[in-house]
Amino acid sequence: MDALKSAGRALIRSPSLAKQSWGGGGRHRKLPENWTDTRETLLEGMLFSLKYLGMTLVEQPKGEELSAAAIKRIVATAKASGKKLQKVTLKVSPRGIILTDNLTNQLIENVSIYRISYCTADKMHDKVFAYIAQSQHNQSLECHAFLCTKRKMAQAVTLTVAQAFKVAFEFWQVSKEEKEKRDKASQEGGDVLGARQDCTPPLKSLVATGNLLDLEETAKAPLSTVSANTTNMDEVPRPQALSGSSVVWELDDGLDEAFSRLAQSRTNPQVLDTGLTAQDMHYAQCLSPVDWDKPDSSGTEQDDLFSF
């Protein structure tokens, strides 16, 4: 819950932080000083300027060897085509990944977070970031790969997607708890209302004896509580940590079903599988986004697919 609360507080303090972009060759504004600060901008989305290598189908939802083989196929196909790589912007948030063309600003792909089953910074092609997700059109699994400016960037994108998945799962947990509370309150309110109706004398007997209905007592009954809980029953509950912020979080049926399955089948359902080692994760978390744009010590960066 700490990640969720800190993310909400950060967004309320400075929503404009989320509009910064990394990996864009110096076009961005001043960047936060450390990885923790940038992680807090996830709610509205972190932007990464990358190059799209392509996509291939895979048979399993996750796995280092599986993704490595898929990336190898994608890279080989991209090299064989001889075409310049498409420059894209990857927007990562707890909602998922939005992929747009840098030149036309046209939407290429919009992947809900619950469809993503794996992401990684490839070991062999260490400047490549990739994720595996279920197609929104059918049940097939797709591996999408992107060329980053350097290994640090690939690791940073991988960690960002993993963190977005974690925050999304926490949102789901909060929403589920809130819905259970509202359902319980609604049920209790309905029981109270039913009890009051059972003990209320029939209207005919009131008229016969000349008694008047006590409207004041009726007004004191917990009807307002019942209506408050039943009027918006169809509205999706939102985490309290975000009250007053500009973010509107809505959970669709697909996300609810997917996270429910994860909660039942996995020990740590909030953790998205990645190909990063503990050492890689520690190294990337210690980086400032400013470091992502620094040239690798191995030599001059080449803006070309064939540089790796």
Results as ranks from 00 to 15, higher is better:
residue 5 K to N: 04
residue 5 K to D: 02
residue 8 G to W: 00
residue 8 G to S: 13
residue 9 R to Y: 07
residue 11 L to G: 13
residue 14 S to V: 13
residue 15 P to I: 05
residue 17 L to C: 12
residue 18 A to E: 01
residue 22 W to Q: 08
residue 22 W to P: 10
residue 23 G to E: 12
residue 29 R to K: 04
residue 33 E to C: 05
residue 40 E to M: 12
residue 40 E to D: 15
residue 41 T to P: 15
residue 45 G to N: 14
residue 47 L to E: 14
residue 48 F to T: 11
residue 55 M to K: 02
residue 57 L to Y: 10
residue 57 L to P: 13
residue 58 V to P: 14
residue 59 E to A: 15
residue 60 Q to A: 05
residue 63 G to H: 04
residue 64 E to V: 14
residue 67 S to I: 02
residue 67 S to Y: 06
residue 73 R to N: 13
residue 78 A to I: 10
residue 83 K to D: 07
residue 84 K to M: 13
residue 86 Q to C: 08
residue 89 T to G: 14
residue 89 T to A: 14
residue 93 S to W: 13
residue 94 P to Q: 10
residue 96 G to T: 11
residue 98 I to V: 10
residue 101 D to C: 12
residue 101 D to Y: 14
residue 101 D to A: 10
residue 102 N to G: 10
residue 103 L to I: 11
residue 111 V to I: 04
residue 111 V to F: 12
residue 113 I to R: 00
residue 114 Y to F: 13
residue 116 I to N: 06
residue 118 Y to V: 03
residue 118 Y to N: 09
residue 120 T to W: 06
residue 120 T to L: 00
residue 121 A to F: 05
residue 122 D to T: 11
residue 125 H to I: 11
residue 125 H to R: 07
residue 128 V to F: 14
residue 129 F to D: 11
residue 131 Y to K: 05
residue 133 A to M: 00
residue 134 Q to K: 15
residue 136 Q to P: 15
residue 141 L to V: 04
residue 145 A to N: 05
residue 146 F to V: 14
residue 147 L to F: 09
residue 152 K to C: 04
residue 152 K to I: 06
residue 153 M to N: 07
residue 154 A to M: 08
residue 155 Q to G: 02
residue 156 A to F: 11
residue 159 L to H: 11
residue 164 A to I: 13
residue 165 F to L: 01
residue 167 V to C: 07
residue 167 V to N: 11
residue 169 F to W: 06
residue 171 F to R: 03
residue 171 F to T: 00
residue 172 W to K: 01
residue 175 S to D: 06
residue 178 E to K: 15
residue 179 K to S: 04
residue 182 R to Q: 06
residue 184 K to E: 05
residue 192 V to R: 02
residue 194 G to E: 05
residue 196 R to E: 07
residue 199 C to T: 06
residue 202 P to S: 12
residue 204 K to H: 03
residue 213 L to D: 07
residue 215 L to R: 03
residue 216 E to I: 01
residue 218 T to H: 01
residue 218 T to W: 04
residue 219 A to R: 02
residue 220 K to R: 12
residue 220 K to N: 01
residue 225 T to W: 03
residue 227 S to I: 11
residue 231 T to D: 11
residue 231 T to F: 03
residue 232 N to W: 11
residue 232 N to M: 05
residue 234 D to Q: 04
residue 234 D to K: 06
residue 235 E to A: 05
residue 241 A to H: 14
residue 244 G to C: 12
residue 244 G to L: 00
residue 246 S to F: 00
residue 247 V to W: 10
residue 249 W to L: 10
residue 258 A to V: 07
residue 260 S to E: 02
residue 260 S to G: 15
residue 263 A to W: 12
residue 264 Q to R: 00
residue 274 T to Y: 03
residue 275 G to V: 03
residue 276 L to V: 00
residue 280 D to Q: 07
residue 281 M to P: 03
residue 283 Y to A: 10
residue 286 C to H: 06
residue 291 D to I: 06
residue 292 W to Q: 09
residue 295 P to S: 14
residue 295 P to Q: 01
residue 296 D to Q: 00
residue 304 D to S: 09
residue 306 F to C: 06
